[in-house]
Computed example of a mutant assay.
Amino acid sequence: MSLTLYLNRRAWLSHMEETEKRFPGFIPVIKGNGYGFGNRYLADEVLQAGKEDIAVGTVDEARQLEKTHSFREMIVLTPLLTELNVADLVPGRVYTVGSREQLRHLAASFERLLSDDRRAWTQTGAPFRLNILIKCRSAMKRYGFDLQEAGKVLDWIREVESDRVRIEVKGLSIHFPKTGMDFAAKEREIGNWLEAARKVGLPAGRMYVSHLTPDQFQNLTRQWPEVEFSMRLGTDLWLSDKSFIETKSTVLDVKEVKRGERFGYKQLRSYRNGWLVCVAGGTANGVGLESPASARGLKERLKLTVFWIFHLFNLHLSPFTYKGKRLWFAEPPHMQTSVLFFPSGSPVPEVGEELPVQLRMTTATFDRLVTDPEVEELSGREEQEEKGKALNAIP
């Protein structure tokens, strides 16, 4: 069985090269499920592309990647509120801090770690240097220091430093919403933070930003040439152009079903004659998982209402398609398999055939990743098979 992600790697790498031209020195974000590709695979690719710095979502993701990959700097985007271990005494990690409480916890965790294991401290021969980024609160209203707190941050840092732990501020970081905020507003927030940082002595030689167009990014570099702006790119880097990827599911089995006949885990009755088609991919792969939708306007609300009515009658539209048409689930997807319903008289796929499937890449897990030249080899093989079928059909 196989739920497969096909990747045109050449075009994908070319896209990364173009991204470097648009956002020089950008920071690739590698987190979660690796945007469907897997964190290790993305780490391999960015190293091959010559990137030395990356950002990860959590400290656990940093630990996992540090076992297999070596980067100059690894930024942890989510504030740390858990305990650390000896493996966290690494020099290249940078922690995001967005409140006094987060700063206290981070420093105290390293203090306890170094106090409990004196060998870890004495081996360094000097106080441990804890690298942090000051997270600036933006219109997102997520974690981050308020602008009015800028003057207190250095005092709070001095409060938590000790003989064992010294804190170095590597720069500022601000995260903007993707929509609903124009560039002028983003520019004002950046300017306000840079001005406040200079007044109170916060290091502001580098600032990490997000959700800007290339022109907007260049505008910032011209307006504040003394600041090194670094663009964080996650979804916009890995998933902005879906033409590089195809996602397909293998047909595992096809069974005829009669109207009124029971089937599946819940032994539901088939409401009409047709076929049950089992395909690779279930809830463990992200099939059937949906994020809450934000309805805007009457049309979107009506659409959601129609789907809600369908659900009342156990009718659930699947992400699988065949010959350009969306297919219905016969029953809720299993862990690694989904069962689709094909009504009698409609074209039915054969066992071993692949069906296109649209998945949310940030929640999808694939059985295999196929890249070119493997993609080209498979495409060529399929083309030869089609030619063979055509020749066999000639009387």
Rank of each mutant, 00 (worst) to 15 (best):
S138A: 00
V86L: 13
L130V: 07
T124P: 09
T96F: 04
I132N: 00
I54N: 02
A87H: 15
E66H: 14
D60M: 14
R137H: 08
R119S: 13
G57T: 03
R129Q: 10
R63D: 03
L114F: 00
T58Y: 02
S99V: 00
W121N: 04
T68S: 14
E66M: 12
S99P: 04
V153A: 03
Y143P: 14
R119N: 14
A62T: 03
V86Q: 15
F128E: 01
D116P: 01
V86F: 02
P127G: 08
Q64N: 14
L80S: 10
L113V: 08
R63Q: 05
D60S: 14
Q148H: 12
D155E: 14
G50L: 05
E66A: 12
T124K: 15
T68F: 09
R72S: 12
Q102R: 13
Y95I: 08
V94G: 02
L130P: 01
T58I: 00
F145C: 05
D116A: 07
P127Y: 08
R72M: 08
Q48L: 14
A150T: 02
V56C: 07
G57Q: 07
Q64D: 13
R100Q: 13
V90E: 12
G151K: 12
S70H: 13
L147C: 00
P79V: 00
S138K: 09
L81S: 14
E73H: 11
R100E: 15
E66C: 10
P79G: 01
K51H: 10
P91L: 06
K152D: 15
S109T: 00
V56A: 07
I134C: 04
A49G: 08
H69E: 01
M140S: 09
I54A: 04
Q123V: 14
A49Q: 05
T82Y: 03
K67D: 02
A139F: 02
Q148S: 15
V97Y: 06
V56K: 03
E101Q: 13
D88I: 06
F145V: 01
R137M: 13
L81F: 14
I132L: 05
V59F: 09
W156E: 15
N131E: 06
A62L: 11
T68E: 12
T96E: 05
G144P: 02
P127T: 04
S70M: 09
L133I: 08
L80A: 06
S99T: 09
A108V: 11
V86N: 10
E101L: 11
Q148R: 12
F110S: 03
G50E: 04
D53R: 10
M74Q: 10
V59Q: 11
D117Q: 13
A139N: 02
D88C: 06
F110N: 02
I157P: 00
R142Q: 13
T124G: 15
N131G: 05
H105S: 11
P91V: 00
R137I: 09
L89Y: 03
K135N: 09
R142P: 03
A139H: 10
E83D: 15
E101W: 11
K67M: 01
A126N: 10
G92H: 03
